[in-house]
Design a protein around this nucleic acid. Structure first.
Lengths: 187, 187
DNA sequence: GTCTATACATCGATAGAC
DNA sequence: GTCTATCGATGTATAGAC
């Protein structure tokens, strides 16, 4: 699955062959198909596994916003993972793609979680009052996705985490739980 | 080239065959290869053509920022074009992709133009002073790209233009040339 | 300028031996 | 559980007739 992750990220699902994945694992492609009956099942297994790993240790609620900055920072040292999700989410845009439903569900869930996080932050006074949680959630997801394209495409030195942090700061989010206990959190 | 545009957008470069493009044009695939000697040449011709069409009529300087909101709004009615650039820019992330250099150059140029536009807006007082033009340029490009993924993937009803406009507003950009003549522009 | 025919590689998946 | 061998489909590209 590690090899499949790397290859799906480099060449996409359609551009990767079972033979090449199998070769990197030191077996033949029927050998690979013994463990994953179809290419599609391998793809979904890879996606599920990566999603599970990425989500563990990620904060919920208002802390999710700051937690994402850390996640973006970690991703900047794992090009393969960024490639996987960037290339496949675009490829899965086609309605008949094997992972279309999976990505559609994933985005719905992430946007909903972020909307809740923004709403919680705003209620705690840690957000400009005129920032709409629903809009901000979509904007934040979009910003992260788009930065990954630029990062992968030409300029690995751009600081994705800093750009996301700057965006949150501009929305009036400072990572505190609220103005009333800012002193203790900053200390 | 219209058919190639649609198919490259739906299935990507690797997922599209010359036979299918040719079939939609009512000719055989050698007939198509008579006009474009290789598949790669067809891809680059499609990209150049679309880029040329998209850029005509687009403002320069500080007006570019507001002009992009209109462009995003127009794109919301041309799914094929959005698919083309979203799918191919992610696919071209791979360093050995035929369009990798083309997209890398395109992003460099767009980010540079936007940085100049932001700098001009800030100099005219139409931007929060603490918005860095270089960072803001990358953020704006990323936001537009990311919104397209969400729009394509599951929710064609999200208003990309409104989200971009909200982002610019939050940066303190109001589409005027400067505070001194706001009254005349708003009238 | 467009066709038929074809060369040659590679794809996902299956059959069956071990 | 892994292999060799193979199927049928499809890929880009070329040759040569018209």
């Amino acid at each position: 699955m590690d090899q499949a992750t790397a290859l799906f990220g480099e060449a996409g699902y359609r551009g990767t062959s079972l033979r090449e994945i199998a070769a990197r694992c030191g077996l033949s492609h029927p050998g690979l198909l013994h463990h994953f009956p179809t290419k599609e099942s391998l793809l979904l297994a890879v996606l599920e596994h990566r999603e599970e790993v990425d989500r563990e240790g990620l904060a919920t609620g208002a802390g999710l916003l700051s937690g994402l900055v850390d996640l973006v920072g970690r991703n900047a040292e794992r090009r393969g993972i960024v490639e996987l999700f960037t290339v496949l989410s675009a490829e899965a845009t086609a309605p008949d793609h094997p992972a279309h439903g999976w990505f559609a569900d994933r985005y719905r869930r992430i946007v909903a979680e972020l909307e809740a996080a923004y709403a919680e932050a705003r209620a705690g006074g840690d957000l400009h009052p005129d920032v709409e949680p629903a809009t901000a959630a979509r904007q934040l997801v979009a910003l992260m996705d788009g930065l990954q394209i630029q990062w992968l495409l030409g300029d690995p030195e751009i600081d994705m985490a800093a750009a996301v942090a700057a965006h949150l700061r501009q929305q009036g989010h400072h990572g505190r739980t609220g103005p009333e206990d800012a002193a203790s959190d900053q200390g």
